[in-house]
């Protein structure tokens, strides 16, 4: 790896001070499993001057729950989410999504903050610099997206325009289905952003002097049902081809409230509002489910090589509703 300086942050305020000093040339390191990969391949032009260890911040890895909901520190490890009884009991979708990430060794160090803020897996974006130089693209600030005319089997079927890379985060899908908010601290103070609003086509909303400090998850309605399904080629390591997060609560026999969130189909977790509309107030009978599955892909504009994602999306939505 090319050299960098290293600092261990002692608090959130300390982290923000370091970030402010280095103006975009400092990178935060929690689990490090995403950051170090990019630093090693030098896929991006910018190489940090300073890597800031934030694992040294005390108290940012807590899982707390009360009547209002769940609060997760940004440094909460994925393995701890998988093992948490509180989460398994009331927020099982989070445990399932966390359990589906990568492999045990990565879940042992990977944090929820890092999972949310990880860079895209677009294979043009990640192309290693050592083999003839990195591939430049919209996301890196120059040149056109090669995926549009290239091999886009893993790219977005919704939106894009400038960049068709998808958000690889499984946690984002599950959290969006729970209507969670991401808590951010920065030089200008604190703010909260809905998980669905955290991402934009070229990345996320974090300013260079900001960091994720935690996640707030509202307690879902009683008797809700939570489903996370991740489709991938292999049962480990792979990022989602398509995933779906579903949180549904019933009012007697009809759907009172529902959130259907799709993963790996857009630049962020994609809320299939048409599908939700097709479900609210209705019984979950086969015809309604079928209609919702169809509606989940309304507005999808697949690229040359990823129309199969449309079929998989519909299938996953149907399966999630049938469970």
């Amino acid at each position: 790896m090319q050299p960098f300086q290293h600092q261990a942050a002692t608090s959130v305020a300390d982290t923000i001070a370091i970030l402010s000093t280095h103006k975009g040339r400092a990178k935060l390191m929690a689990g490090g499993t995403d950051l170090l990969g990019i630093l090693k391949t030098r896929a991006t032009v910018a190489y940090p001057k300073v890597v800031v260890n934030i694992k040294s911040i005390a108290g940012l890895d807590k899982i707390q729950s009360d009547g209002q909901g769940l609060s997760l520190g940004a440094l909460t490890r994925l393995a701890d989410i998988v093992d948490s009884e509180v989460i398994r009991d009331a927020y099982p979708i989070l445990a399932e999504a966390a359990a589906s990430v990568a492999m045990p060794q990565i879940r042992n160090v990977g944090t929820i903050g890092g999972n949310l803020a990880q860079e895209t897996r677009c294979w043009y974006f990640r192309y290693p610099h050592s083999i003839g130089g990195r591939i430049m693209c919209k996301r890196k600030g120059e040149a056109a997206c090669l995926a549009v005319k290239g091999d886009n089997r893993y790219h977005a079927i919704f939106g894009g325009k400038k960049c068709f890379a998808v958000c690889p985060s499984d946690m984002a899908v599950a959290l969006a289905a729970l209507d969670a908010e991401i808590q951010i601290s920065g030089a200008k103070g604190q703010r909260s952003v809905a998980v669905t609003g955290f991402y934009h086509p070229l990345g996320n909303v974090l300013e260079t002097d900001e960091m994720i400090t935690g996640i707030k998850v509202p307690r879902p309605a009683p008797n809700n049902r939570q489903v996370f399904i991740k489709h991938r080629v292999r049962d480990a390591i792979d990022f989602a081809t398509v995933s779906v997060g579903l949180v549904v609560s019933m009012d007697a026999k009809t759907v009172a409230d529902v959130r259907v969130v799709l993963g790996a189909v857009a630049s962020g977790p994609y809320r299939a509002t048409d599908a939700e509309a097709a479900l609210v107030g209705r019984k979950l009978d086969p015809a309604v489910i079928e209609k919702a599955a169809e509606a989940s892909v309304a507005g999808a504009v697949p690229l040359s090589g990823n129309a199969y994602k449309v079929d998989i999306t519909k299938t996953l939505v149907r399966q999630a509703l049938q469970i």
């Binding site: 290293h6 390191m29 990565i106 042992n108």
Partner: peptide
């Protein structure tokens, strides 16, 4: 815990 030593500083 099992960890990846290549992804650990």
């Amino acid at each position: 815990k099992s960890i990846l030593s290549c992804m650990t500083l």
